[in-house]
Design a binder for these strands. Structure first.
Lengths: 136, 136
DNA sequence: CTAACGTATGAACAGGTGTGCATGTGAACG
DNA sequence: CGTTCACATGCACACCTGTTCATACGTTAG
């Protein structure tokens, strides 16, 4: 009894129960990956701005580009990413393409995260910057 | 009146109102960056698993490593990232370090995102894979 | 038709990210 | 004391990401 695998952790048997119960809560790999994919998609300032802007009303590519201060090409690339995740949809009208939010969850996700940021994330940011600096 | 900048978009004046109102909703740059940072932190399968596991109860590094199937070093590296964002905290007991969630928002964030994934993200994933394939 | 426009996309490049390896640090134990 | 253990960290390297540039596509105007 006790140690199942080689010398990994002396007190293995103590936390085995915890590991087991924790493993049960883990979503299946596919869901985990999808989850991470969505968060990674939201993990870019440009895309956050796009989604915030579109939360008001639909906008065309060139207006988004002007709003963001980046090229229309870069904007289009980012919109492609957002489209691939079904976060935005678009409607073609002549040569224009009007984009809008495709998913209601996203807005509440961002608002929830914003609440987190506005609360006690100040020390967090300091810590981050300290680490990032010392890493260079 | 009308066109403010050089030849960017012919119908500039039409959507100027939209751009203006959309710009008002945008959070200040610092908040946007913080928001994106948090999402980017959540945008990794390993870290998602860590947070899901810790949502049950605190775990030490070596148990997390076993649970995740990666090295303790990699686990420690990821925990450092999560710490820097104040997403987890740790308690030292002898040579062990027990980690637990530091923020209640995070769990609800992940659950909200999970709801999004479980709904209609299937087509989304197909699209993503199609794009990823054609990009190689 | 041609030309111009708004948008989309492929290639390329700088910069960033996650993991393994080697090593360091502090605590517990003989 | 020195050794072992759990954990942390610097470095290196393969991989991924976001932007720019050049170009192509479909639509509209002349």
């Amino acid at each position: 009894m006790g140690r199942k695998e080689a010398d990994v952790c002396e007190i293995y048997y103590v936390n085995e129960v915890r590991v087991r119960s924790a493993r049960q809560v883990l979503s299946p790999e596919r869901e985990i990956v999808s989850l991470a994919e969505i968060f990674r998609t939201l993990g870019d300032p440009t895309r956050v701005k796009i989604l915030q802007a579109l939360s008001v009303e639909e906008l065309c590519v060139c207006d988004l580009a002007k709003l963001l201060g980046i090229s229309e090409s870069a904007t289009s690339h980012q919109l492609r990413v957002l489209r691939s995740q079904k976060l935005v949809r678009f409607r073609k009208e002549g040569k224009m393409a009007f984009y809008s939010l495709d998913d209601a969850h996203i807005d509440s996700l961002m608002k929830e995260a914003l609440r987190h940021v506005r609360e006690g994330a100040d020390q967090g940011r300091e810590t981050t910057e300290r680490i990032r600096e010392s890493a260079e």
